[in-house]
């Protein structure tokens, strides 16, 4: 396959996944904001959310101060902000358009329809909850049509690599928002923070999963174990890195053994590591380190297979 084609496929799926992840984060944020809060707390939460996405400075440069309505718009509808949901869906669609002959026509039509709909969306009248549900729904649809129609060839493998590298990044960022300094990853039923840990489960679509797996109270340790170590949870770090590794092996070329080795090494940590050991240097430090690995893998994949970033 053409390197440029692989590049478009990879980025198409990264942008799609990023759009969904943003919707999930905003959804968690939105639900949390429905609880009784002082304006101070609301502003602090937005600062944390914008910060975990790495866009706090961009937002402040534009608006100067935290205001919930503006912050939401900035992350959802702002066309000039390159990482808003609307921009993610536009980028996904533009990448798909460039390879519309490689993806199936059903995939193209789904992505194109998503873009046409969000372009026509009236942000002023949008119901926040409905809008975020819609984004997730369209993302489910895109994923479904990909799995249901695409040939299991290299093109498919590059879309998988893009999807799971992006998802690994997103899950780590959502965990990071909970990994405040001093947070105890223990088996105490999550006391005052109970609602926040439950919300994390819900926003990663894992609340029912948690109940099924543990049949017990929500504790920080179990939630962390679920999202870090369990290979059977679709959005866990272990699952994501497993998919990246397997698909990288499938597309391997003469240049890529080192990239494959690094992905394998990272995978082995989740496959064979203990939670206590992984978190030995602190939860936040572990997640920061992990994000560094996904960034470097992304860079190496571009160099080995795609159109290298110059």
């Amino acid at each position: 396959m053409l390197s440029r084609t692989a590049d478009h496929l990879y980025w198409m799926s990264r942008w799609l996944e990023r759009g969904e992840s943003l919707a999930r984060m905003l959804d968690a944020h939105y639900r949390h904001s429905l609880l009784p809060h002082t304006p101070d707390v609301l502003a602090r939460d937005w600062t944390a959310t914008l910060g975990s996405l790495g866009v706090l400075d961009g937002y402040l440069a534009r608006y100067g101060e935290i205001e919930p309505g503006r912050a939401f718009n900035y992350l959802a509808f702002d066309r000039d902000h390159g990482s808003s949901i609307v921009s993610c869906l536009r980028e996904a669609r533009e990448n798909a358009r460039a390879v519309r002959g490689t993806i199936t026509s059903e995939m193209w039509e789904t992505l194109n329809a998503t873009w046409l709909e969000i372009r026509a969306y009236d942000a002023r009248r949008a119901d926040v909850g409905d809008f975020l549900e819609w984004v997730k729904y369209r993302s489910h649809l895109s994923r479904g049509v990909t799995l249901g129609t695409m040939l299991r060839d290299e093109a498919f493998q590059f879309t998988r690599i893009g999807t799971f590298l992006e998802r690994a990044d997103a899950t780590a960022r959502m965990l990071l928002a909970r990994a405040k300094p001093g947070v105890e990853i223990n088996d105490d039923p999550a006391g005052t923070d109970h609602y926040a840990w439950t919300l994390l489960l819900r926003s990663l679509s894992a609340f029912e999963v948690y109940r099924k797996v543990y049949r017990d109270a929500v504790t920080p340790r179990r939630v962390t174990e679920l999202f870090v170590l369990r290979d059977d949870v679709p959005r866990s770090l272990h699952r994501c890195i497993n998919e990246v590794y397997v698909n990288l092996r499938a597309v391997g070329n003469d240049q890529s053994p080192e990239t494959e080795r690094r992905a394998g090494e990272l995978h082995a940590r989740f496959r064979f590591g203990r939670l206590e050991d992984l978190l030995a240097r602190g939860y936040g430090a572990f997640l920061d380190d992990f994000l560094g690995h996904t960034r470097s893998l992304g860079h190496r994949i571009s160099q080995d297979f795609l159109v290298p970033v110059t």
Partner: peptide, 8 residues
């Protein structure tokens, strides 16, 4: 003439 692909 060659095209650049993921496999060379």
């Amino acid at each position: 003439v060659y095209m650049r692909t993921t496999r060379g």
